[in-house]
Every structure is written in structure tokens, then in C-alpha cells.
Nucleic acid binder design. Structure first.
Length: 244
DNA sequence: AACCAGGACGTGA
DNA sequence: TCACGTCATGGT
């Protein structure tokens, strides 16, 4: 199953918003100029993450941002850094209660403290170097077995930390696609993922930009409680007439 | 002052 | 499988 509107939407959003430079590395980015320039974002540079610390920051951020504003996550990442908890070994040594103290501003802090620790335990058995060499599908199954990692979080980790072309579906993707009847409003995660992966070229930077652009555009026009504006950008672009 | 945010899990039908 | 309650802080 292929849908030609999907690459069309991608190209238009890219032309409107430009490169997003995801995943933001707020604390472990090693280039100070870049860090202050774009608040952790690194538009046009696709050789991140460069260190295991950066990979870990992406994974922890992906868990922390579940149903949570990114701004809150940034606060938590810095307090985790202050508490020396931005490391696998220190997470392993800490009790969930101690971790919870550092991530209070994110909400769900008791649950997520356990999730972070679960992930650290997993990484101590399967270091990044091992995961990166695994086929994407195998790696995905393993990550999904961790309690606290669902499909979206797993795909974020695969796409941004492990650099595997695994499509990320989020709430904005479902809302945007269902508005233009590309999928049903209640379509399954897997269905949307497969549709997108077969409608797009197998290209890592593109997948990374795609999700980032959908979040950017989704925040603007597709919040759950509509605050007025309709999505004129995509409606005009998709419904304009082609050449005669 | 309700309502939502870059979801996931446990439960019961 | 699926609909629904729960987890919880901070911004609008």
C-alpha cells in the first residue's frame, strides 16, 4: 500500500519549516557553538549522536517526553545531569525513588523513574555497539520488551539514537493523516507505520526530519483542543489543482 | 480553572 | 483485541 500524498506532505512541510535538526541534544552535545546556537538542535547535521552519552540522552529524553512537553523534559535532563544520573552505571546504582526526585517536573515521575532504570538495565546487557549491529526489526522487538517502552518510544530510540530508518508514528501523525483521509482516525500504529515506510524512500535523514516536522506542524494546528486556526498550509497544498 | 502535552501499562469485557 | 482508567507536573 502506497500513498503519494505522504511524500508530498513531507516536501511541503520541509519547504515551509526547513531542517529541524532532531533529536535535540540539550546537555551532552559536544559543540558549544552549535549548542548555544540552536538549543541542542543541529539542523542539517546528520552525524549525531557522536558519543554513547549522547545516545543515552536521546533514549532517556524519549522516555521522559511520553505525553509530556519537551520543556519539562529539558528541566529533568539538567537535574539528572546535576545528580550525576545521566549515566548507565549511576542509574543502575540508584533507587527509583532517587531518580524520581530528579525528574519531578516531567510528571508520571514514579513510573518513569522505573522506566529509566529498566532501560539502564537493558543497556548494561546490550550496549549501544551491540544494538547498532542488529537488524532493525530484531532490535525493535528487544526494546519493546522493556517495560516502559512502547512503539513510539522504541521507534524514536531506533531512529535517533541507533540511526535505523524506523518510522515514528505519534498523535500528530494520526491527526494529520486522518484529516486528509490518508488513514482512519483509529488506525493502528503498525498500519500507519507500514504505510509510511512503503510510501517513502529508505532514507535516514528524511525519516528523522519527517517526525520532527510533523511535531512542529502538529503543535501549530493539531492540538487536541483546537485553538482556532485551521491547517491552511496543507489543505491549500494538497487540494490545489495540478497541471491540466 | 479546566484542559492538554512529542504515551504506556493494567484491567476487564 | 479494545476501550477505559491511571499515572502527575507545568503551561495556557
Amino acid at each position: 500500500m502506497i500513498n503519494q500524498n505522504i511524500p508530498k506532505i513531507y516536501n511541503h512541510l520541509l519547504s515551509v519549516y526547513g531542517y529541524q535538526g532532531w533529536w535535540p541534544l540539550v546537555h551532552t552535545i559536544d559543540d558549544p557553538a552549535l549548542r548555544s546556537l540552536a538549543d541542542g538542535y543541529h539542523p542539517g547535521q546528520y552525524d549525531f549522536p557522536r558519543t554513547d552519552a549522547q545516545k543515552l540522552e536521546i533514549c532517556l529524553g524519549a522516555i521522559l517526553t511520553q505525553n509530556t512537553r519537551w520543556l519539562n523534559v529539558v528541566k529533568c535532563l539538567s537535574s539528572l545531569e546535576t545528580s550525576k544520573l545521566l549515566s548507565i552505571d549511576h542509574l543502575l546504582e540508584s533507587r527509583p525513588g532517587q531518580i524520581a526526585l530528579a525528574i519531578k517536573s516531567v510528571g508520571y515521575y514514579n513510573q518513569k523513574a522505573k522506566y529509566l532504570k529498566n532501560f539502564a538495565v537493558f543497556l548494561s546487557d546490550h550496549p549501544f555497539s551491540e544494538l547498532e549491529d542488529l537488524p532493525s526489526a530484531d532490535c525493535r522487538r528487544m526494546i519493546l520488551d522493556i517495560k516502559g517502552i512502547g512503539q513510539e518510544t522504541a521507534d524514536c530510540i531506533l531512529l535517533y539514537a541507533l540511526r535505523k530508518t524506523s518510522f515514528v508514528v505519534d498523535a500528530y501523525t494520526r491527526r494529520i493523516f486522518s484529516k486528509f483521509d490518508i488513514v482512519e482516525p483509529d488506525a493502528s500504529y503498525q498500519k500507519i507505520k507500514v504505510l509510511c515506510e512503503s510510501s517513502l524512500p529508505d532514507d535516514l535523514p528524511m525519516f528523522q526530519e519527517f517526525h520532527a516536522l510533523f511535531v512542529k506542524h502538529g503543535k501549530r494546528f493539531y492540538s487536541k483542543k483546537p485553538h482556532g486556526a485551521e491547517d491552511f498550509l496543507l489543505t491549500e497544498h494538497l487540494f490545489q489543482r495540478g497541471p491540466i
